[in-house]
Structures are given as C-alpha cells and as structure tokens.
Design a protein around this nucleic acid. Structure first.
Lengths: 210, 210
DNA sequence: GTGGCTATTGACCAAACGGTCAATTTAAGA
DNA sequence: TCTTAAATTGACCGTTTGGTCAATAGCCAC
C-alpha cells in the first residue's frame, strides 16, 4: 500500500465525484456517506473531506458534475436539420424521451435533488437554472411552431407550451421509473404524436427518426 | 409529567403518524428520525418503536396514511356532470392542477417516496398501485374522448393518453415545486387547453369551472 | 382496595456518522 | 541530496442514530 498522492488534484476530484455518483446511484443521496464514497474510490474518508471540505459541498458538486456529464437537452444536428418546427419538436421530444429511458438512474438522482432543493438554497438555484435552460431550448421551437400555424394551439403561449413539453418528459421519466412494467414508451410517444399531429391542412405526414 | 397511556392504541398511531407527517414535511423523509417524530408527538421515542416496530415500517405506514388523507384524484360531482368527455377531461385536469398547487408539501413528500421506491419493494408496489389508480381514473374519460371523436388524436390509445395526462399533472407539480416563481399555473393551463381544444367541428366552447 | 395486564418511559447500547488533527509519505525545487 | 510544501492517512472525538430492556405508571376486572 505504498501508492499515494500521484494524482494531481483535478483528477482526484474527478475520481471521487465518479465514486460519489456510483454510490448515489446505488444507494441514493440519502444514504450517501463520506465513508462510502471514500471506500468506492479506494481512498481514506479523510481525503474526501480534504478535497471537498464538508459533505454538503460534495453533494452540491456532485449535482454540478452530473448535470455536466449528462449534457441535458443538447439539440443535435438530427433535430436541427428539420425545416419545419413541428418536425423539430417531434424529433427533440422523441430524443429526450428515448434518452431518459436509457438512463433511469439519472432520473432517480434528479428526483432526490429536486426534493433536496426545497431546503438547500444552493441546490434549488442550480436546479432552477437547469430547468430554465431546459425550458428555454423548447421555447424557441415552440415560438416557431406558433408562428407556422397560429391557429394550431389557440390561446397558448410559447412559455406555456414549453412548460408542457417539459412536463411530458418529466412525467414520462417519473412514470417509467415508478412502474417500468406498466409504462410503454412507444404508446406514450404515439399519444404525444397524435396529440400534436393535427396538421393545419396537410395530412399523412410523420416524423422520421433513427 | 404524570400523564400516560390514556390513548387507545388506534388514536396513538394516528397521533404519531400525524407528527411524522409534520416532520416529513418540515425536514423531509431523509431527515425523519424516530426521535424527531416522538418529540413532535410529545412522547418518548421508545413508544414510537413500540407501536411501529421498526422505523422502516413507520415510513411505510406514513405513505399509506398520506395517500389516504390526500384522497388522490377523486372525481367530483362538478367534473362528472359534464355530458361531453372533453369537458370532463378539462375539468378534471384543472381540478388536479389546482389541487396540487395548493398542496406543495405533498409534492415534495411524493418525490422522496418515488425515489425511495426504487430500492424498497413495499414502497414501490404501493406507489405503483396508486399510480395505476390515478391513470385508471383518466383512462375512462380518455376512452370516451376517443369515442366521441376518433379523429381527434390519430394513433393514440386510451392508455397512452392517460399516461400523458398524468405527465401533465406530475410535470406541473414538479416544475411548480422546483421553480415556483418561474412557473405560472394559468399559462400552463391555457397551453393545455389550446393543445386539447381542437373541436371536431364546433368552435368557441370553453370549460367553466368554480 | 388489589392484582394483573399493557402502554409508557428513561437508561442504555453498539454502530455509524461528519469532522478534526498530528503524523507520515510523496513529488518537486533548490 | 536536502528542503519544503502539499497530499494522504489512521486514529480519535462528540454526536446522533435505530433499537433493546427492565422498570414503572395507569387502567380495568374483581
């Protein structure tokens, strides 16, 4: 056991945060302890506190780390290339629903952070900022959508529609997490398409993805 | 401090569960301790364990208790009296969105229970059952809705639509909890109405509530 | 009253927690 | 090589946790 401090500060933080992520996914943030993280990283628990000061900061930095690596709501080329806003929206929605269904662990983590946010100011503002970023990405597409066909959603604003879009994804994530066997992603997406798919005068179109 | 066991078993459980609810709302389930509950109820912490055995069972029974007193998704007379399924759906949706916005504490609690459900089998099945009950209530209205106008949501099933409806409410609850100042219930409901409000041939109708 | 049953309590316990600290090891600079 | 600053550790501490248990206080039948 002669190996020690080779690792240059930044990499150590990364290593510990990765271990913290594993522990949080396995046991939840509620049961995340400094000692468990240290054991997962293969270091002493004093070292974790040396690099992060308090446990509270470790948890907070873990939130930042997860949000960074998750690269939430990145509008890919596949989405942006659609000329019509409706198709872009469908593609983005399908992308996000599919992505979250492939990362169920993240949903659990975010659930706990959302709950924590009601008490810790720092966490709440961080989450609120991310939520705002998330909604903002939809807002542009929604504004285009209303612009293309003002009669499509009478009385609805881009703000309202983007909030609804976020609800779709959040609600899908939660239901898939709580009762995976009772929740079918395809059926869900089909319902969303049917709900959005009233063309202003055209018919028989559909979004191609893959 | 001479007062003791007057309370007849059932009432004691109720009293303790009420105290547990207050503690859970104030500090979260993560920080709920047997001693904190006992202090809130004004009894010794040994008595709490005498009535509930383990802390785990206290937390589980609290979930049942909360779900009972919340009377989730009760289809009121005001909703049922609408002859058209579309109006019933709008009314029910508005009722649920409004109700949850008046009980933000419950949302936080359920968030934590959802996260806990990923690890505790008992909690997960209990939540899944409640979610199923919730979706079931929407499914009937959704089936009627499709029956009234099969072309309204092409390709969508009652199952898919009810899942979407649940998403609306869950997503609304989460967003209102995470960033209350950035979330406007009226704008959200207006967007939902605009999204659902494509009459098959009629126009200018709206749902009256209150 | 009085005896017995049970709800209730305070004291106690082992474990785990977050956090501190002096002591050691390591890498790098002189 | 010697020095120096930083990284790392094991030992330790005070607190809190869930849980147990013998003792006790209240209530009912008699």
């Amino acid at each position: 056991m002669g190996k020690r401090k080779r690792i240059p500060e930044e990499a150590r933080r990364e290593q510990i945060l990765g271990a913290a992520f594993d522990v949080a996914c396995r046991a939840g943030i509620g049961r995340l302890t400094v000692r468990a993280v240290a054991a997962e990283a293969g270091v002493s628990h004093a070292l974790v506190l040396f690099h992060f000061g308090r446990k509270e900061r470790l948890v907070h930095d873990l939130l930042d780390w997860v949000l960074d690596i998750t690269s939430v709501l990145h509008i890919s080329e596949d989405v942006a290339r659609f000329p019509r806003a409706r198709d872009r929206f469908h593609a983005l929605l399908e992308q996000e629903v599919t992505r979250q269904s492939h990362q169920p662990e993240h949903t659990r983590l975010f659930l706990e952070y959302w709950a924590l946010g009601t008490q810790h100011e720092e966490i709440r503002t961080r989450i609120a900022a991310e939520l705002e970023r998330y909604r903002e990405a939809f807002r542009g597409i929604m504004a285009d959508l209303i612009g293309e066909d003002p009669l499509l959603f009478p009385g609805a604003t881009a703000d309202g529609l983007s909030a609804v879009a976020v609800s779709w994804i959040q609600g899908c994530a939660v239901q898939a997490l709580v009762a995976p066997d009772r929740f079918d992603t395809d059926t869900y997406l089909a319902a969303l398409r049917g709900m959005m798919g009233r063309p202003g005068g055209e018919a028989g179109h559909h979004v191609e993805t893959s």
